[in-house]
């Protein structure tokens, strides 16, 4: 983990967080920090607890033990949600709307100025190559995925959380998303990026947290991991297992 995390005020701070599904612990004593401008990759195999961690951060699950602090607040409020952009792994926007209508609807809650809202929507639709006036019900799976991703960047949020964003994307869109993530980070946003694709995280993120069976097994900066292990993939194999 970046040592500066402790010095700079964290945007997101997880302190020994445990989440239970019934009696089963989905994640256990998970701790990490996210500071402004950081792109933190959450790595782990299926069932490692990446999505559960994200859902706990966003107040979608009750936390059994530990504490989550976002923007120095410990309780998720509408004001905080307005500062967060989130693209879930699986989500269906309302099918009766068009992409433009959907983003316009969301922008009314996230963007104050009408002019910048229209500009922002048009630029997002164009970036993600979405037909603005086509009903969402007629969108393909990939187009729906792009729409879900685009709404995460709406209103230039301070914290962007992407859960398995590459699922269903073609190689061109993967490249464009990578550029978008880097651009958002440069403009001051912090990114929490969960993915199975380690090479992609190596390109898009500054830091990584490795999870295995609900626990954090390793965290560090990408350059440090590459220096020690040769690549993120090798670091993952050394700490979690696999070839």
């Amino acid at each position: 983990m970046n040592p500066s995390a402790t010095l700079v005020q964290s945007i997101l701070h997880l302190d020994k967080v445990t989440v239970k599904y019934g009696f089963t612990k989905a994640i256990e004593t998970v701790s990490f920090d996210l500071i402004p401008g950081m792109a933190l990759g959450l790595i782990g195999a299926n069932g490692a607890g990446k999505t559960t961690s994200i859902r706990a951060i966003l107040g979608m699950l009750g936390v059994s033990e530990g504490k989550i602090t976002i923007f120095e607040e410990s309780k998720m409020t509408p004001k905080l949600l307005a500062r967060i952009g989130f693209a879930p792994e699986e989500a269906t926007p309302p099918e009766y709307l068009t992409a433009k209508e959907y983003l316009t609807f969301l922008s009314k809650f996230k963007i104050k100025a009408q002019e910048s809202s229209e500009h922002s929507i048009e630029s997002l639709l164009s970036w993600f190559e979405l037909d603005p006036n086509k009903p969402i019900r007629k969108y393909s799976k990939g187009m729906r995925r792009r729409l879900v991703l685009s709404q995460a960047f709406l209103g230039k949020p301070d914290l962007i959380i992407l859960d398995e964003p590459l699922n269903g994307l073609d190689p061109i869109m993967i490249q464009k998303l990578r550029e978008r993530v880097v651009e958002s980070r440069r403009s001051g946003a912090s990114i929490l990026y969960s993915s199975h694709i380690l090479s992609e995280l190596e390109n898009s993120c500054t830091d990584v947290v490795m999870m295995h069976k609900g626990k954090v097994v390793m965290k560090g900066t990408i350059p440090a991991l590459v220096e020690t292990y040769g690549s993120v993939e090798k670091a993952f194999a050394a700490n979690v297992g696999g070839n």
């Binding site: 879930p88 699986e90 309302p94």
Partner: peptide
């Protein structure tokens, strides 16, 4: 319940209102 069920509910949850 349309906006509060299944995969759609996650996006609805993220709308920043009470």
């Amino acid at each position: 319940p349309y906006a509060h069920r299944g995969e759609r509910s996650i996006l609805t949850h993220m709308i920043p209102i009470s």
